[in-house]
Each structure stands twice: as structure tokens, then as C-alpha cells.
Design a protein around this nucleic acid. Structure first.
Lengths: 207, 207
DNA sequence: GTTAACGCTTACAGCATGTCAAAGAACGGT
DNA sequence: ACCGTTCTTTGACATGCTGTAAGCGTTAAC
């Protein structure tokens, strides 16, 4: 997935230390930028155990590094989503599974919580926007067909709304106004509501 | 509201051309940063008809300028919210009024649509976070007391969720996936749902 | 009309991003 | 184990943006 940051057709396979450096840089960027999104290339390079020029040897610019990082993130996100069977589980459960995958992803990539990243150049391939929303939208459409979800609101909007709700919940966690568990619970609750889930999900009163 | 960008107790009143410059700078920043959030001080100064140093004469740093800009924005937002009687109107109508104020505000300050701004140093006073969420939360709490809104979900979370929904809707407009009208309609619809509005708001079928 | 405040020009330092060239180190294949 | 290639490092350099400073012209306030 992060095979070729530079070009698409390497004449010869990459050397092992180069691959090690690339992985170290990507990992360092994930961590450092997760803590401080405006960290310099120097900091990332140092954290990766290489020099700044080595970073530029593999990623022609800061934006290119970001794009590659987002790209690997999207691949991991896609793997998480594929592991949660969104296609077959009951829609309400599938929605919970979608959100759960998101929480686990955001714990590994707190970088994407910071909004600074949203406007950087989109990766050439494997864009998160091409990976995450379509799967959620298919899930919502399925629920609307089966009648488990309300079909009177467009699935495209509900897709954006659900992701927006999760962003809002994550921001509340970042601001320490909610715990991770509270945020997940409330987010799921509101998600089911906007999707018009008819599943009688018991309000937390004893039976 | 934007009286004293520098200090709090000016020994003598500000001169007229100084005030004119300050207003021009703030207005230029609002417009230029709305188009390109990473615009330089030079561009802002040029747009304002002054030199870069004049900007620094009034705002000690870029962040200070941002803070002042956010501060005036918050004041305008507060005025819009106060004009829509959130305290007395029926909760569902008040929610619609809240969202409407938001749409009008975002049209004037597209700058705040860009997420780059969210993490800059908070203004010393008149922070938007101290202006907008409390009014919405009071409105939701009132609706929960009167029974017009569902009281089983915390008003604090619903506050964040409603604002998050509006952000999501605004992003869809920015991405040209929705028109402004569609976004407003869908956002209101989902807002009423997560708040558990019991108002029978007719689905858009003809009477 | 005098004075204080304000704006403009010029200059400078600091920092981050990119770029380049050359020498040294590590890898891969033989 | 050797050798050629690839990778890394060092050092230097150009550029652009931020922030600071002093001097001088201009304008508003009283």
C-alpha cells in the first residue's frame, strides 16, 4: 500500500534499509504529528532516527509525506472496516461496528483528529474519502431497503452526518469534556436516531 | 468589541486613522483568509491597503490578529443569536433559528469553515466557545424541561452534536455535494431527530 | 499651529522548506 | 569476500514568511 511514494514503476526492488527508513519516517510522522500537527520535518526526521535530507530523499515535499501517511492510514482504516462485517450484520449492529472501527482507528491516528490535515492535497490513490464514506453509505442504503433504517432521508447526507457526529464526539474527548466510553455511547445513540433505526435499542433503564 | 487589540487600558482614545486601519485589516483578514487560510501577512496587509509593518503595529503577531478576528466574529455571532429569540420560541422553532443564525454567520465568515483555525490560541475574551454553545445548551435544556425535546440524552452532548452536524452540512456545501438549501433542510431534519423533537414536523409532502 | 500619534521605508535576524553536491556506509548479488 | 549500486550523511545554499527595530514623513487631535 505504501510501496512507491515517489514513482509507480521502480525499475528495481527497493533496498531493505530504504524500506526501513520509509517505515520509520511514516511511523514517526504518525506519532509526532499526532501530538503536534505543525511539527517540523526536522522533528519527524529525528524521531525516525534519520536526517532531514533522508526524508526528502523519499518524500519530495512535506505534502507528499502527508499524502503518503494519509494513504497508509486509509488502508488500515479500510482493513478495520472490512473486518467488521458491515455488509451482512443487522444495520443497527453494523452502524455500531462502523463507529467502533472509527474509534480504534482514531486511537492509532490521532493525527486525523486535528482538522489541519483535511485540506492538504489528496493522495493520488487510496484516498480516505474514497474508502470510508462509500462503505458507510452502502450500509445505510441496505438498511433503508430492508426497512431497518428510515428511508426518507438521503443516504449520502446521513453518511456525512454520521461521520460528522463521530468527529464531534472525538472532539469532546479531546477537550476532556467526555470520556472515550461516554463519547462512544452517545455517538452511537445519536447515530441510530438520525438514521431512524427502528430497532428497539433499550434506553439504559433496567428491564 | 474589537476595541483594544493590544492592551486593555489605552491612556488616550485611539486616533481615527488608526481605527480605520484596524478595521480595514480585520476586514481584509476576514476575506482573504476566507479564501485562502494560509495567506501571508503581506497579502492581508496589501488587501487592507497598508503595509505589513502597520499590521504588526496593531497586532503583535499573526495569532493575535487571528484572535482579534475570531473575537469580532464571535461578537457578530452572538448578536445574530440574540436576535433570534432562542429563549422564548418553541424549542423546535428555536433550534431552526439557531441553525439559521449559523448559516448566515458562516456565509459572512467562511474563514471559520476551514478547520485550520480551530486550534489557534483562544481569544482572551469573547471566545466563540463561550458564546455559542452555552446559548444552544440553554435552549436544549429548556426544551427538555418542557418535554418538547427528549430529556434522556445529556444537553451538553446534544449541543456538541448539533454544532457538529452543522459543520458536516457546511462541509458538504463546500464540497459542492449539496446546495445551501438542501444542507439547511437536511441539517435541521437531523438536528430535530437527535434532540428527540416530538413536534410533528410534516415530511415535505403537499397538504 | 503645535504636538503626539500613526504610517511608510528600509533593514535585519530567525526559522522552516526545499535543493544540491560530494563523501562515506550499508546492502545485494556474485 | 568482493564490488558495484544504492542509500545515508554532511555541509552548504536559496527562498519565503514571521517578527523586530530605527528613522522620517504625514496626519489627526487639542
Amino acid at each position: 500500500m505504501s510501496d512507491t511514494p515517489d514513482t509507480a514503476a521502480p525499475s528495481r526492488p527497493r533496498r531493505s534499509d530504504a524500506r526501513r527508513s520509509i517505515d520509520a519516517i511514516l511511523d514517526a510522522a504518525r506519532i509526532v504529528l499526532g501530538e503536534r500537527p505543525d511539527a517540523s520535518m526536522e522533528e519527524i526526521a529525528t524521531k525516525a532516527g534519520v536526517t532531514r535530507q533522508t526524508v526528502y530523499a523519499h518524500f519530495p515535499s512535506r505534502d507528499a509525506l502527508m499524502a503518503a501517511l494519509i494513504e497508509t492510514a486509509a488502508a488500515e482504516y479500510a482493513a478495520l472496516l472490512d473486518a467488521a462485517d458491515l455488509e451482512t450484520a443487522p444495520p443497527a449492529d453494523a452502524l455500531a461496528g462502523f463507529l467502533d472501527a472509527g474509534w480504534r482507528f482514531l486511537r492509532r491516528y490521532p493525527l486525523l483528529l486535528d482538522p489541519t490535515v483535511t485540506w492538504i492535497p489528496r493522495p493520488t490513490s487510496n484516498d480516505p474519502h474514497d474508502v470510508v464514506p462509500p462503505r458507510l453509505e452502502r450500509l445505510i442504503q441496505r438498511g433503508q431497503r430492508t426497512g431497518d433504517l428510515d428511508g426518507s432521508v438521503s443516504a449520502a447526507w446521513l453518511t456525512a452526518a454520521v461521520i460528522g457526529l463521530q468527529h464531534a464526539a472525538a472532539a469532546e474527548v479531546s477537550a476532556a469534556r467526555l470520556s472515550a466510553d461516554e463519547a462512544a455511547t452517545l455517538c452511537l445513540e445519536s447515530t441510530l436516531r438520525i438514521c431512524g433505526s427502528t430497532t428497539t435499542r433499550p434506553t439504559p433503564t433496567h428491564p
